[in-house]
Amino acid sequence: MFSYGTRLEFGSDVRPTLTVLPPSREELLKGKATLMCLANKGFPSDWSLAWKVDSSSSSSWEESRSPGVMQKDGHYGWSSTLRFPADHWRKVGSVTCEATQGSQTPVSETLRRDQCSQS
């Protein structure tokens, strides 16, 4: 028996790797702060991304997500952006990007503002 193409085994869920990118210095000078969460090499495609902000005034930020994109290796990648006014970003202690899927243990990555050189 012969098989052709990429083989993905059912039940082989793969937790994505998360990276949180801070806002750029140039953007902060313009009064805005955009953070990006990159999720790579996850499977299947229905992992979802969410942001957690330690500040109580969460109404002053907005988020958007991209749909999952299949990568050459058969895994998926996603991204999510989080936008703040720059003055609000300066009051935030940390932001966390969390990936969840069904009954899988969530994957998270936290960025502390005081670790960002441009804050």
Rank of each mutant, 00 (worst) to 15 (best):
M1V: 15
M1Q: 15
M1S: 15
M1F: 14
F2A: 15
L18D: 06
L18M: 05
V20C: 02
V20T: 03
P23T: 00
S24N: 02
R25M: 10
E26H: 09
L29Y: 07
L35D: 03
C37I: 04
L38S: 12
A39K: 01
K41V: 06
G42K: 01
G42I: 04
G42Y: 02
F43N: 13
F43M: 12
P44A: 05
D46Q: 12
L49C: 07
W51L: 03
W51I: 06
K52V: 10
S57E: 10
S57K: 12
S58R: 13
S59I: 01
S59L: 07
S59C: 07
E62C: 09
E63M: 08
R65I: 05
P67T: 14
K72P: 03
G74E: 04
H75I: 05
Y76C: 02
G77Y: 04
W78Q: 09
S79M: 11
S80K: 05
S80R: 08
R83E: 11
F84Y: 10
P85I: 09
H88I: 00
C97K: 00
E98M: 15
Q101S: 11
S103R: 15
Q104W: 04
Q104K: 13
T105P: 07
P106A: 03
V107S: 06
S108M: 07
T110K: 03
L111E: 04
L111I: 02
R112L: 07
R113M: 05
D114W: 06
D114R: 11
Q115A: 10
Q115L: 05
